[in-house]
Design a protein around this nucleic acid. Structure first.
Length: 403
DNA sequence: CACATCACG
DNA sequence: ACGTACGTGATGTGT
C-alpha cells in the first residue's frame, strides 16, 4: 500500500496521453489490418494464423518455396529446425508479394497491440497520467530500465510509429513538453576514451559522424544523405564499435559478405584507434575479470577467459559496458543536478521521462525559457570530457513536436 | 516458461 | 571451425 507521500509524488509526475487520439488510431489500424489479412490470404492461397511462425514457415518455405527464387539463405532457428521469418529475412524475399505484406501487417499489428491498445490501460484515473517504473538495478551497464509500461521504447523510427509519439502530451493546456537529448553521446564517450583524431576533430567542429559514415557506405555526397541512410550508418557505427562481424553487416547494408569484410577493414584503417580501444577494454577485462566504466561501476564477466560462444559474448560486453555505462552515468549525474535546481529554484517543471540519452520535462509556459537553458547548461556541463557534450533541446505540444 | 519477433537507445 | 554488435521490455505462439 503506497503511503500518502508516495501517492502525492505519483500524482505530480507521470506523463499524460491523448486517449481519444489513440482510439482513433486503433480503429484505423483495425481496418487496415483487416484489409492486409485479406491480401495475405489471397497471396498465400489459404487462410492461416498470420501470427504463427510455424504456419508461416510452412507456407513460405514448403508450399511456395519463395526462398528458392531469391538466392536467400535464411538463417535457421530452433523452432522446428526451420528458417527464420524475421524482418531481415523477409526483406530479401521479393520474388513473391507475400513477405512484404507480412512485414506491413507485422508493423501495424505490433504498434496496435503493444502501444495503441495497451497504453490507455496504464492511465491512473486519479492522476490522469501514466506512471511507469524506472528501475535502477536491472541493467548490467547501469542504465535505467522502464516497465509497466516501458516508456523507453515508444516508437519513433517509422511514419506510423511517430503517430504514437504524437499522443504523449503535457499535463494541461498551460504546459509544454521539453525534450533534451545528448547528441551522439556514446560516440563522444568513444572519442573521449580513444582520443581518436578523426572523432575528436569531428566533435570539436560539431560534425555528424553518422552522416559521414553514411556518405561513405552509400557513396553519396554528405548533403545527399537521407534520413534512412543515416539510420543505417548509425547501426553500422555502433555495430562495428561493438564488434559486429561481416555476416551481420552484410545483412544490414544489403551487400555481399566480401564487400562487408572490405568495408570493416577500411573502417578500422580510418579509425585505427577505435580498434586499439577495443583491444584495451578486452585486455583490462581479461586481467581484472570485469569491465569498468569511467566512474568505476564494475560488470563482472566470468566468461571472459573461457571459450566459445560465452567468451565471445563476454568480449562484446567488455567493449560495450564501459561506453554504454559511462553514458548512463553522465545522464544520471545530469538528472541529479537538474532535479536539485528544480527544487532549489522552486520551479514547477517536472522531470517525467529518461530515455538513455534524452530527458523529457512537463513545463508551464512561463518556465519554458528558463528550463530550456537550465537543462541544456546542466546536461552539457555536468562533466568535462576530451570532446564537448552537445544537447539539443526542443519544445512542443506533444513528444513528437518537442523532438 | 522458452522462443521468436520487434519496439527503443 | 566455431559463434559473431550491446543494452532493455512486451507480445503471441507453442510446449
Amino acid at each position: 500500500m503506497p503511503t500518502a507521500e508516495v501517492l502525492s509524488t505519483i500524482e505530480q509526475n507521470g506523463v499524460r496521453i491523448d486517449v481519444a487520439g489513440l482510439e482513433k488510431i486503433s480503429e484505423e489500424f483495425e481496418e487496415r489490418l483487416k484489409a492486409l489479412s485479406d491480401r495475405i490470404y489471397e497471396a498465400a492461397e489459404e487462410t492461416f494464423n498470420i501470427n504463427s511462425i510455424i504456419e508461416l514457415q510452412s507456407i513460405l518455405y514448403d508450399k511456395l518455396e519463395i526462398h528458392k527464387q531469391c538466392k536467400v539463405k535464411p538463417k535457421k532457428i530452433k523452432l522446428g529446425n526451420k528458417m527464420s521469418t524475421d524482418e531481415e529475412t523477409l526483406e530479401k524475399m521479393q520474388a513473391h508479394p507475400l513477405p512484404e505484406l507480412i512485414l506491413q501487417y507485422r508493423e501495424l499489428n505490433k504498434l496496435k497491440n503493444t502501444y495503441v491498445d495497451q497504453l490507455p490501460a496504464f492511465v491512473n484515473p486519479d492522476s490522469n497520467r501514466i506512471h511507469s517504473s524506472f528501475r535502477q538495478t536491472v541493467a548490467a551497464t547501469g542504465r535505467l530500465a522502464s516497465d509497466n509500461p516501458n516508456l523507453q521504447n515508444i516508437p519513433i523510427r517509422t511514419e506510423e510509429g511517430r503517430r504514437i509519439r504524437h499522443v504523449f502530451i503535457p499535463s494541461n493546456d498551460n504546459h509544454v513538453l521539453v525534450s533534451a537529448d545528448y547528441s551522439q553521446i556514446e560516440l563522444r564517450v568513444v572519442a573521449h576514451f580513444s582520443k581518436d583524431p578523426t572523432f575528436m576533430a569531428a566533435y570539436r567542429q560539431n560534425l555528424d559522424i553518422h552522416a559521414l559514415t553514411a556518405a561513405t557506405i552509400f557513396e553519396v555526397p554528405e548533403d545527399g544523405v537521407t534520413r534512412e541512410m543515416r539510420a543505417k550508418a548509425k547501426e553500422v557505427n555502433f555495430g562495428l564499435i561493438y564488434r559486429m562481424g561481416p555476416e551481420r553487416l552484410s545483412l544490414i547494408t544489403h551487400t555481399s559478405k566480401t564487400e562487408a569484410k572490405g568495408f570493416i577493414e577500411r573502417y578500422f584503417q580510418k579509425y585505427a584507434t577505435i580498434h586499439t580501444l577495443q583491444e584495451h577494454f578486452l585486455k583490462q577485462a581479461r586481467k581484472q575479470g570485469y569491465a569498468q566504466t569511467l566512474m568505476g561501476r564494475r560488470r563482472y564477466l566470468p566468461a571472459i577467459n573461457g571459450r566459445g560462444l560465452h567468451r565471445r559474448m563476454a568480449e562484446g560486453a567488455a567493449v560495450n559496458t564501459p561506453i554504454q555505462g559511462t553514458a548512463a552515468e553522465i545522464i544520471k549525474l545530469a538528472m541529479s543536478a537538474i532535479q536539485k535546481r528544480l527544487q532549489r529554484e522552486r520551479l514547477k517543471t517536472k522531470m517525467i521521462l529518461s530515455v538513455h540519452d534524452e530527458l523529457v520535462f512537463d513545463t508551464p509556459h512561463h518556465e519554458e525559457e528558463i528550463i530550456v537553458s537550465l537543462v541544456k547548461q546542466e546536461m552539457e556541463q555536468v562533466i568535462t570530457l576530451e570532446v564537448p557534450l552537445v544537447v539539443d533541446v526542443g519544445v512542443g505540444a506533444n513528444w513528437l513536436e518537442a523532438h
